[in-house]
Design a protein around this nucleic acid. Structure first.
Length: 386
RNA sequence: GGGGGAGUGCCAGAGCGGUCAAAUGGAUCAGACUGUAAAUCUGACGGCUAUGCCUACGCAGGUUCGAAUCCUGCCUCCCCCA
């Protein structure tokens, strides 16, 4: 039987999980994810993979979509109050989160709950929950200490968060709760809440936070250094190729559960990319993404499939002339000012030949059927007839 | 209840009457280089069929030849004391 604590940073209280496993019954293992952004990224999958391990070992996984707590905002690891998404955004995200999570978890064997089920409670019940702790206890957490030291605001709402998350554990009668290391306070706090409600406190396990593609800060959507599990194969492969070599061992260990193979870093990184693309897009997708990557970035060639753009809509006022800035803007979803700048920078190519800054208008016949390219990665084929 | 401070571009953050489409850093995009969409270096980075025009520094007015910068009101936020 595989060691369920592999890669874990904290498993608390000491020895508790081992005792629970000794009991021989399926444990209820909880993970909560707030649908605050649209996509789950590889950072989230570190914990999801661990959850899948529990699942494969026969335990009952309880995935909580925090549609209610998303409105509160988890202060974990935050130096400022989290902006609260609109109800519509939360709803939309909540729907896609489940599908994304099931790229890793076994749908049939996962209990999915939304915490609005029980957190949308009567005010009296909420007061009862609030009575279970003290402000001093809530302020203990590192995030708040830092903010107070820096005279940064702490929203009263944020104080509530650990209580609500803890109540989730009560509602689903969790035996074990997983989370990133930044969740340690919340996870431990859940034990207190469970105790207050007469339940046997859960044990907790924290897992490392995956570093982002910049190799420095944690992977997060807002930092733009993430790889989303729904990213297109070549996007995913490309982003993975851009991680610093030093980050590779960690990616191997946390995402693939193995050591980085020996040999040239380039080979190892390509393997990492292929394997992860395969995982999220099915077998063979990794190799295909690598092919495309090679074409574009190594051979500087045009990919097989590129979109077509009709030219007629971008004719200049006169007749057979096409105004390039407008064409570029429309073809690649930019502004025409950006189109001009790109032309000036020599970033726009027609069949691989740079188009200079002048002239701005070209004969439509000289463009028809040719490949327009902006930078290294954006291509389209031009057609005179729509 | 009292006192102090802040609202600027995608984010952070300078500017505090003209030379400000607004320093600097991050993000982003492009060029060079490269095993790489890394690192590094260079450049760009509101919009517009464009040597000019339009929009923009919380909102609304006002002073001035001229305002992000001064004044008035309003809105929002933060800190400290109680």
């Amino acid at each position: 039987m595989p060691d369920l604590t592999r890669n874990a940073v904290d498993v608390l209280p000491a020895g508790r999980l081992a005792e629970q496993l000794e009991e021989g019954r399926p444990l209820r293992v909880k993970l909560g994810i707030d649908p605050t952004t649209a996509d789950i990224h590889l950072g989230h999958t570190v914990v999801l993979e661990k959850l899948a391990e529990f699942q494969r070992a026969g335990h009952q996984v309880v995935l909580i979509v925090g549609d209610f707590t998303a409105q509160v905002g988890d202060p974990s690891g935050r130096s400022a109050t989290r902006p609260v998404p609109s109800a519509e955004e939360i709803e939309a995200n909540a729907a896609t989160y489940q599908d994304q999570a099931f790229k890793i978890l076994d749908r049939e064997r996962t209990e999915v709950r939304r915490n609005s089920e029980w957190l949308r409670m009567e005010p009296e019940a909420l007061l009862g929950l609030l009575a279970q702790t003290t402000v001093a206890r809530l302020l203990e957490r590192d995030d708040f200490q830092k903010r107070m030291a820096a005279s940064q605001p702490i929203a009263a709402l944020e104080l509530l968060y650990p209580l609500l998350q803890g109540y989730d554990s009560v509602a689903v009668e969790a035996d074990v709760e997983l989370g990133g290391t930044d969740q340690k306070f919340n996870l431990l706090f859940g034990r207190d809440v469970q105790g207050a409600y007469g339940q046997k406190p859960q044990s907790i396990m924290t897992l490392p936070i995956l570093v982002g593609t910049d190799g420095g800060r944690k992977m997060s959507k807002s930092l733009g250094n993430y790889v989303g599990v729904t990213d297109a194969p070549e996007e995913m492969f490309g982003r993975l190729m851009s991680i610093p070599d030093e980050a590779m061992p960690e990616y191997y260990r946390l995402l693939l559960g193995s050591e980085q193979p020996g040999g040239p870093p380039n080979q190892a990184k390509r393997e990492l990319g292929r394997r992860l693309v395969d995982r999220f897009h099915g077998g063979g997708a990794g190799a295909a993404a690598e092919d495309r990557f090679n074409r574009i970035h190594v051979q500087h060639a045009v990919p097989d499939e590129i979109p077509e753009v009709g030219l007629d809509a971008y004719r200049a006022d006169g007749n057979g002339l096409v105004h390039l800035p407008r064409l570029i803007a429309a073809a690649f979803d930019l502004s025409s000012s950006e189109g001009r700048r790109l032309l000036q920078q020599g970033a726009v190519k027609l069949d691989g030949e740079p188009l200079g800054a002048e002239p701005l208008d070209r004969e439509i016949d000289s463009l028809d059927g040719h490949v327009l390219q902006v930078g290294k990665r954006r291509f389209c084929r031009l057609r005179a007839t729509p």
